[in-house]
Amino acid sequence: MTALDIVKEYYTSFNQKNWNGMLALLHPEVRHEPNQGEVRIGVEKFTEFMKTMDTSYEESLTDLVFLTEPSDSRVAVEFVVNGVYKKGEEGLPEAHNQSYVLPAAAFLDIKDGKITRVTTYYNLPLWIKLVSA
Results as ranks from 00 to 15, higher is better:
residue 86 K to Y: 04
residue 124 L to T: 15
residue 75 V to W: 02
residue 122 Y to K: 11
residue 3 A to E: 07
residue 79 F to D: 02
residue 16 Q to Y: 00
residue 80 V to M: 03
residue 44 E to G: 00
residue 132 S to C: 05
residue 62 T to Y: 01
residue 33 E to I: 12
residue 119 T to P: 02
residue 5 D to G: 08
residue 52 T to E: 09
residue 82 N to T: 00
residue 25 L to K: 01
residue 124 L to R: 09
residue 75 V to F: 03
residue 69 E to W: 07
residue 2 T to I: 06
residue 13 S to D: 10
residue 28 P to T: 00
residue 89 E to N: 11
residue 122 Y to A: 10
residue 6 I to K: 05
residue 16 Q to T: 01
residue 49 F to A: 09
residue 44 E to F: 06
residue 84 V to F: 09
residue 107 F to Y: 12
residue 38 E to Q: 13
residue 35 N to Q: 15
residue 1 M to F: 14
residue 121 Y to K: 10
residue 123 N to Y: 06
residue 11 Y to Q: 04
residue 19 W to K: 11
residue 107 F to V: 11
residue 80 V to F: 00
residue 10 Y to R: 05
residue 82 N to K: 04
residue 121 Y to E: 12
residue 104 A to D: 12
residue 44 E to A: 11
residue 108 L to E: 06
residue 41 I to G: 10
residue 115 I to D: 04
residue 69 E to A: 14
residue 59 E to N: 12
residue 34 P to G: 07
residue 109 D to I: 05
residue 9 E to A: 14
residue 104 A to H: 12
residue 10 Y to F: 15
residue 38 E to N: 12
residue 16 Q to W: 01
residue 54 D to F: 07
residue 76 A to R: 00
residue 70 P to L: 10
residue 124 L to P: 08
residue 28 P to F: 03
residue 15 N to R: 04
residue 8 K to M: 13
residue 115 I to T: 09
residue 1 M to S: 13
residue 66 F to M: 03
residue 4 L to R: 11
residue 89 E to R: 12
residue 94 E to C: 13
residue 8 K to D: 11
residue 17 K to W: 03
residue 112 D to V: 02
residue 38 E to R: 07
residue 20 N to R: 07
residue 6 I to S: 14
residue 89 E to D: 02
residue 124 L to K: 08
residue 5 D to N: 14
residue 121 Y to R: 09
residue 109 D to M: 13
residue 115 I to S: 00
residue 90 E to W: 06
residue 73 S to C: 12
residue 67 L to F: 15
residue 26 L to C: 13
residue 1 M to K: 14
residue 44 E to D: 13
residue 71 S to R: 08
residue 52 T to S: 10
residue 104 A to C: 15
residue 48 E to K: 12
residue 97 N to H: 07
residue 42 G to H: 01
residue 23 L to Y: 03
residue 103 P to C: 11
residue 9 E to Q: 08
residue 128 I to W: 00
residue 42 G to C: 06
residue 112 D to H: 08
residue 97 N to P: 00
residue 38 E to L: 08
residue 116 T to K: 08
residue 77 V to Q: 04
residue 24 A to W: 01
residue 108 L to A: 13
residue 130 L to K: 11
residue 29 E to S: 14
residue 99 S to P: 03
residue 92 L to G: 13
residue 19 W to G: 01
residue 133 A to K: 15
residue 116 T to G: 09
residue 13 S to Q: 03
residue 123 N to I: 04
residue 68 T to N: 05
residue 27 H to E: 14
residue 45 K to H: 10
residue 88 G to T: 05
residue 98 Q to R: 04
residue 68 T to L: 09
residue 133 A to I: 14
residue 91 G to H: 02
residue 64 L to I: 08
residue 124 L to Y: 07
residue 112 D to Y: 07
residue 57 Y to N: 03
residue 70 P to H: 01
residue 102 L to C: 02
residue 73 S to A: 11
